[in-house]
Design a protein around this nucleic acid. Sequence first.
DNA 1: TAAGCGTAATAACAATTGTCACCACGCTCA
DNA 2: TGAGCGTGGTGACAATTGTTATTACGCTTA
Lengths: 216, 216
Amino acid sequence: MKIKIAIVDDNSFLINTVKEKLSFFQNLKFKFSAINGADLLEKLDANQKIDLILMDIEMPVLNGIEATEIVKQKYPQIKIIMLTVFDNDENIFNAIKAGADGYLLKEINAKDLHDGIVDTLNGGAAMNPSIALKTLKLLRNPLDIENESDKDDIKLTQREIEVLEQLSKGLSYNLIAENLILSTGTVRKHIENIYKKLQVHNKLEAVQKAKKNKLI
Amino acid sequence: MKIKIAIVDDNSFLINTVKEKLSFFQNLKFKFSAINGADLLEKLDANQKIDLILMDIEMPVLNGIEATEIVKQKYPQIKIIMLTVFDNDENIFNAIKAGADGYLLKEINAKDLHDGIVDTLNGGAAMNPSIALKTLKLLRNPLDIENESDKDDIKLTQREIEVLEQLSKGLSYNLIAENLILSTGTVRKHIENIYKKLQVHNKLEAVQKAKKNKLI
DNA sequence: TAAGCGTAATAACAATTGTCACCACGCTCA
DNA sequence: TGAGCGTGGTGACAATTGTTATTACGCTTA
């Protein structure tokens, strides 16, 4: 029995890209596509024998999060995997709350997409490793997940985040240098740059601001 | 550069099974194994140039959750993937809280284990699909999370709490003294006493421990 | 009533942290 | 091709923080 799949995306070019990826696998069957949530709901009414929906988020009329909520309400047996280019906490968390069974990024290769679909149908959840990490961070910080308000979208480099993570454990410059195999001076330099970017002047403020902005 | 891996498990048969799975890949290098958390900590002190630890949970002396917490505190750059047969919510959530970077089940095949390790080293998180689903459910229901208060019931005086609250805002000794109308010396004295009671040695640790124990 | 604790203060020292200026190399992107 | 950025490094200096010791006074409680 083939897995019957619908694709929802307002970009027809991307729909074709996904269709092509699905086409490599005999156990997957593309059934139809929709260009937004409202379109999907109509088509589902006519043809609800769908196993799984690959859902974009940013769409006119009815976005992917809202559509997911409605579909899950009306057809709880249909699995939904978000398939989007956006991986911000806000979207991830809302999609999960709306009932999504997985969250993948559009850059995914054909095999991983296939595996994710199969895993999901087998009662698991499909997740890109970077998304998985974000869900873990969200779980660790049951903070104010609700409010989106004042994130300044501060950009730290990978190295700076590593240093910041060590800082947040209460380690001294020397220990951080040891752990990352750097000179103490370089660690200080990184921290100096972090402070500038975060506009703070000591460890505690840096760590708190980083947590607030979900940088760590 | 090979990825240097340690395995922690009280069952030597299972250690060998995992070692064998790792051995298929040239980019992975098994460095050492430990039979419990305490054993691991000793061996890490001697040989800390480890990139990633595959950690069992159920172990005598020091279990995998506790060990994870300690290792993550001391060597935040070391990645830890829980590798266990138990997939109950309790364990998963506690492992995540302790700082685990992934959670896989022992039945995993060699390739998926390899992929999970690589994904984790690349800044993602490794998760079995069934585990991923549980994390999603936990995120949807933050209810189950509340409990497990392992607070050591540390008693601070009113004044110490006041000082700690100011500390937690990132204020310097001088500013705290001004705010509480004390001499700087007295503030230092209070902080010294707080450190003793909390068994910490700097502001950041004090604030974090205070928050964890709901003292502030 | 004496011991213990909380509060408050001072002094002195070592260690860590925060700031500033400057160098160098490789990569990317306009 | 050259400017900008990320990364890694050095030196110097001031400020802050962490530690230890020592004093004192009032309150509680065994």
